[in-house]
């Protein structure tokens, strides 16, 4: 049912694309990260929660239809429904059913419940398309409660030394998780790019902890000993260095490895990710019962090889996903910023 073209993942009987990277007539979007939600599609279909994100990031004038999880629509005889992917708010796996065959395109996903996005839900299918961003057994996340405690302890430690805590995390998804984890740890300040997305979330009824939007180009004295969250693009800029007496931490799955932490020379690195870890990927693939698995981005060769070894037919399909901040391995990310 699925073909992998140079425009994106194509459903031939349904005549639509999923997360295409070149302009097409009809695109179903798994989630709002820029490598999955590109501009130029005549029509978009996505989860309700993703609508304001697309409008904010692409254009308010796009033709976009939002539907809920488990709601079914039909296109050229293909039954389409969205199922929670647990990656970020509004992220969805796309289930397609045609003549009794079921395919699922999962986009990006995580199994851990982050307390913000609708928890991942396994969908039985014949054909499953999976990511493999952290497809190596070295990637194993701590329980979310432990991760949150680590963030809180680090902030407390900084406060004891009269330091301001600066967190670097992706503005869509990660930033809100950090806010959630630190809602009682001190005054929260977010960079305006994060504030913009927060407002999109608030519009659709997501409740976020109290925060204040900060413009780092202006006076920053009031941030003293507070918690500041900025997107990764600011890491290299001089702006965060303007914050007096601060310590900065990077929150990303890549921080699992010492070499990556040291390379970025942050004061701390927390392995907190919106992607599935190794066990999570395997668990997710197994739970679908799929006969055929397509691996799209990340550790594709390794993960596909391993799936074949444990008796699950898998191949690697080329896509242009993984250009988003966290999905990128650190080397690519650096080169872009």
């Amino acid at each position: 049912m699925l073909t992998f073209t140079d425009k994106g993942i194509y459903c031939e009987p349904g005549q639509f694309y999923i997360d295409p990277w070149k302009p097409v007539d009809y695109a179903i979007i798994t989630h709002g990260h820029a490598d999955h939600a590109k501009w130029g599609m005549k029509n978009y279909l996505c989860h309700h929660f993703t609508v304001p994100i697309l409008q904010s990031r692409i254009s308010p004038d796009i033709s976009v239809q939002g539907i809920g999880y488990h709601e079914t629509i039909s296109r050229n005889g293909v039954k389409i429904s969205l199922h929670p992917a647990g990656h970020i708010i509004g992220s969805a796996q796309i289930r397609l059913e045609y003549k009794g065959k079921v395919s699922v395109v999962s986009g990006d996903y995580k199994i851990q419940e982050d307390g913000l996005s609708t928890p991942f839900e396994s969908v039985k299918c014949h054909e499953f398309v999976t990511e493999s961003t952290f497809g190596l057994p070295i990637y194993r996340w701590q329980p979310v409660a432990t991760q949150n405690e680590q963030l809180q302890q680090w902030v407390q430690h900084n406060q004891e030394q009269q330091k301001t805590s600066v967190f670097v995390g992706y503005s869509l998804g990660k930033a809100q998780r950090i806010m959630q984890a630190l809602k009682d740890a001190g005054p929260l300040f977010v960079h305006y790019s994060i504030g913009k997305l927060n407002r999109a979330f608030e519009q659709i009824g997501v409740e976020l902890p109290k925060y204040e939007i900060v413009d780092l180009r202006e006076d920053v004295k009031h941030l003293d000993q507070g918690i500041v969250i900025v997107p990764p693009s600011l890491l290299e800029s001089k702006v965060i260095k303007k914050i007096p007496y601060m310590a900065h931490a990077i929150c990303s799955g890549w921080m699992q490895v010492r070499g990556a932490r040291r390379w970025r020379s942050a004061d701390a690195g927390f392995a907190i990710s919106d992607h599935a870890d190794w066990e999570g990927l395997i668990e997710a693939v197994k739970a679908t019962g799929a006969e055929q698995v397509h691996v799209t981005h990340g550790q594709t060769a390794v993960f596909a090889k391993y799936l074949n070894e444990i008796g699950i037919a898998a191949d690697v399909v080329p896509t242009e996903y993984g250009q988003e901040e966290e999905e990128e391995s650190p080397e690519k990310k650096e080169a872009q910023s």
């Binding site: 190596l136 057994p137 070295i138 990637y139 194993r140 699992q256 490895v257 010492r258 070499g259 550790q299 390794v302 090889k305 391993y306 070894e309």
Partner: peptide, 29 residues
């Protein structure tokens, strides 16, 4: 302990760059 095939262990090692750390990371909690 981990039941990881050797090739996969070596892939992990090459991503980490340190044997002691690779072992520490692949072992179950």
């Amino acid at each position: 302990v981990t039941q990881i095939p050797e090739w996969l262990f070596l892939e992990s090692y090459s991503a980490v760059g340190d044997l002691g750390e690779t072992i520490a990371l692949v072992l179950p909690p």
